[in-house]
Design a protein around this nucleic acid. Structure first.
Length: 155
DNA sequence: GCCAACGTTGGC
DNA sequence: GCCAACGTTGGC
């Protein structure tokens, strides 16, 4: 079982939106970055846990926990000429882009902000910080536990 | 295969 | 809204 962090702009799709979705589940799609795609397609398994991170937010922060409930499937928006995420290089025989299904588990007792993560000795080397623009990144066990503990404490 | 130009992400 | 960082594209 592995831990991950996934980013979403709350204006587009927030953790609250995930909680309100049918079965509290959504297809995590429209990822168009090869490194993120490789994680989604090859490494993320059912049962893995995910920090749900709000980017472009005030403040940007980890706000909740989700669980992977179905592993990689082909992202249909790559074939849809009307979609913003249409990719002319993708074919039904050779799809390029994938997504996974995630289900809301619980909101953190309080958000853990990027600012706090950058300041924390055990968190400042997170891939989230090092590779700022990657929308899916792995989280170590230590990082996971540290963030869960932080969220359980008032600051 | 190099690398300049261009596009996107996302913090601020 | 700006712009730095960095991934992608395409000419050569």
């Amino acid at each position: 079982m592995n831990y991950w962090l996934m980013k979403s702009e709350p204006e587009v799709f927030s953790y609250a939106d995930l909680e309100k979705a049918p079965q509290q589940t959504t297809f995590w799609d429209n990822i168009r970055n090869y490194q993120a795609r490789n994680f989604l397609r090859d490494e993320i398994k059912v049962g893995d846990l995910v920090f749900f991170y709000h980017s472009n937010a005030q403040p940007s922060a980890i706000v909740g926990i989700a669980k992977v409930v179905q592993q990689a499937s082909v992202d249909p928006s790559q074939f849809d000429k009307k979609s913003d995420y249409y990719d002319p290089k993708a074919t039904q025989e050779k799809p390029i882009w994938y997504g996974v299904h995630i289900q809301a588990q619980k909101a953190l007792q309080r958000p853990v902000s990027l600012e706090e993560i950058k300041k924390h000795l055990l968190l400042k080397n997170m891939m989230l910080v090092q590779r700022g623009r990657l929308s899916v990144s792995p989280v170590s066990v230590k990082e996971w536990e540290t963030i869960v503990q932080l969220a359980g404490r008032s600051r």
